[in-house]
Simulated assay, not measured.
Amino acid sequence: MPADRRLGAGARLALTTFTVAPVRPGRVDRATAGTAMALAPLVGALLAVPVAGVLLLLDSLTAPLVAAAVAVTVSALLTRGLHLDGLADTVDALGSYRRGPAALEIMKKPDVGPFGVVALVLVLLMQVAALAELVDGPGSAVLAAVVTASAAGRLGVTLACRRGVPAARPEGLGALVAGTVGPVALAAGIAAVMLLAVPAVPDRPWQGPLAVLTALAVAAALLRHVVRRLGGITGDVLGAGVELVTTLVYLGLVLSG
C-alpha cells in the first residue's frame, strides 16, 4: 500500500479504535495497525480539545469540582468508556494472582470484580481532583495540560505496541497491533508529547515533560509485569495503559514546586 494511503487508513483506524467518531476503518492489517498506534497520541490531543472546552466553560458557571467531573464524563463518553473497561479488566486479572490463560479468562468475564471497581474509583477521583486543581490556572495552560495528559495516555498505547512486545492471544486487538510500532515512530511520539507538555505549567516549563517521562516509565514497568503474567498485551491492557498514563500525567502537572 502506498505511504499516503496507509497513513489515511491508519488515521481512520485510530479514530475508530480510540473514539466514537463515525468513521469507516477501511483496510485493516498489521501495517495499518502500526500506523494507527503511532498516530494514537494525535487522536488523544484531538479528544482533549472538547474536554478542555467543557472544563473551561463550566468553570465559569459552577464549582471547579463539578466542572472537572463533567469534563471527565465527556472524556469517557467520547471513548465509549472502553479504556476504563480495559483498566477494570486488567486490574481484576492482575489482582487474581493467576497467570496466562487463567488470568486472560478473568479478563473475558463481563462483570467487574472488586479490584477493578477500586481501580476505577481511584483513577476517576484522581482525574477529577487534578482537573479541579488545574482549572485555576490560565486558560492556555489548562488547554495544554489536558492535551498533554490525553496525548500522553494514548502514547502509552504506542509504547505498549512497540516491537518486541508480544500479544497475549492469537486473536483480537492485541494480536493485530502487538509489535507494530518501530523505534523511530515511538521516539517521535515521545518528543512531540514532551513538547506539548512545556506550556502546561508556565512557571516551570520542565515539569510537564518530566511528568510525561515519569508516567511512561511507570507504564513501561507495569507493561513488563503484565507481559510476565499474561504472556503479552491485549486490548484491555492497552486501555489500562491509557488511563494509567493519563492519570499519572495529571498528577505530575499539579504537583507544587
Rank of each mutant, 00 (worst) to 15 (best):
Y97G: 12
A187H: 04
A175F: 03
A68W: 01
G252E: 09
K108Q: 14
S96T: 11
V157G: 02
D236V: 08
A191I: 05
A129E: 13
G156C: 06
F18C: 03
V74E: 01
A93G: 09
A102P: 02
V245A: 09
D236P: 04
V72P: 04
A132K: 10
P199C: 08
L82T: 12
V121E: 08
T62H: 05
L253A: 11
G8V: 08
L159F: 09
D236Y: 08
A215H: 10
R224Q: 13
V193I: 09
L143Y: 09
M37F: 06
V198G: 01
G241Q: 12
Y97A: 15
L77G: 02
T19E: 01
T90R: 12
G172R: 05
R169F: 02
A40K: 00
V72E: 07
G53H: 05
W206G: 12
L47C: 07
Y97E: 14
G86K: 13
P2C: 03
P50W: 05
R12G: 00
L57N: 01
A167D: 02
G86I: 05
A175K: 00
A48G: 15
H225N: 03
V20N: 01
L57K: 02
V193L: 07
P22I: 03
A129V: 14
T73P: 01
L159V: 13
V218K: 07
D85W: 04
A119H: 11
L176M: 05
V142H: 01
G86V: 06
L94K: 02
P110V: 13
T180G: 03
A188V: 14
A129W: 06
T246C: 02
A68G: 06
A144R: 05
P199V: 03
